[in-house]
């Protein structure tokens, strides 16, 4: 009765796959339907069109939100990459006193939830005049203990011979870092960039507190804004907006998929 077992297995696989992607598929489907049909519960409607997407782009600031998210996520990712690379380099290639202790200081920051720091951080940003600005949205995230650990792991894999040769060749730190360390750690750096970009694209709490106008509001908070403003429950347009916000994430994930497959499944529980 092996074939019966196989059929049983496929039944469950297909059933569970459908359940898993159903919320996304229904969202996509709803984004293609006229709101009148959604409101009437007519989900089998054949009036499929991109009208909601055109409506979302013309009547909501969704493109502005996407631009803001793109600018902030890119700035943070670049800043983080530079800052974390420099720190990880020191922890791997330089010997100095109190290295262990300093590394422990970095470790500790991973135990302190950002949610517990929002009040003083809000006041700091306000005193700098950075409320509702790209600076306020990005600079606090330029340092990341997790990022340092991730790059440190990659740098540790660099054979010590390479360092010896670089020394013989008379390379200084900058040339060794740029010419050897970074090219050697390429795949981890790609994973780092994808992970950080997605994390900051999906950020919610900090932008919610520090942005007040559409000029700086990023996507996730923009979604809340649209959903809260919309008194008529225009679900078609809301769904179209949500899907538009989701598309860049999916593109990044598809590009990065082959790096994630290498076993480095970074990510984490979302809050």
């Amino acid at each position: 009765m092996t074939w019966l077992k196989t059929i049983n297995r496929y039944f469950w696989l297909i059933f569970l796959a459908v359940i898993t992607i159903a919320p996304i598929l229904l969202g996509v489907w709803a984004s293609l339907l006229p709101t009148a049909d959604i409101a009437a519960g007519n989900f089998m409607s054949t009036h499929i069109s991109l009208a909601n997407y055109i409506g979302a782009i013309q009547t909501t600031p969704v493109l502005r939100y996407i631009t803001n998210s793109f600018v902030t996520s890119t700035l943070i990712t670049l800043g983080e990459l530079v800052f974390c690379t420099l720190a990880a380099y020191v922890f791997v290639f330089i010997d100095f006193r109190c290295k262990k202790q300093l590394f422990f200081v970095f470790l500790i920051t991973m135990m302190l939830p950002f949610e517990a720091q929002i009040i003083p951080n809000f006041q700091t940003i306000r005193s700098f005049g950075w409320l509702n600005s790209y600076a306020g949205l990005t600079i606090p995230f330029f340092a990341s203990a997790f990022g340092v650990f991730m790059l440190r792991q990659a740098f540790l894999k660099i054979p010590s011979e390479l360092q010896e040769y670089s020394e013989i060749l008379g390379m200084n730190h900058t040339r060794f870092l740029m010419g050897i360390v970074l090219p050697y750690s390429r795949s981890t750096i790609v994973t780092f960039v994808i992970y950080m970009f997605l994390t900051h694209w999906n950020a919610y709490l900090w932008p919610l507190i520090t942005t007040f106008t559409d000029a700086y509001r990023p996507t996730q908070v923009g979604l809340k804004q649209l959903q809260a403003e919309d008194t008529f429950s225009n679900w078609g347009v809301i769904m179209a907006t949500a899907i538009l916000i989701l598309i860049p994430t999916l593109i990044v994930l598809i590009i990065g998929q082959r790096y994630f497959k290498k076993g480095l499944n970074v990510g984490g529980a979302k809050g």
Binding site: T20, Q220, I238, A242, I245
Partner: peptide, 16 residues
């Protein structure tokens, strides 16, 4: 597939 979906988008999908 749910890995890249943000908490905000997921919340909107479930609200719907």
């Amino acid at each position: 597939s749910t890995m890249g979906i943000s908490a905000a988008v997921a919340s909107i999908l479930f609200l719907f």
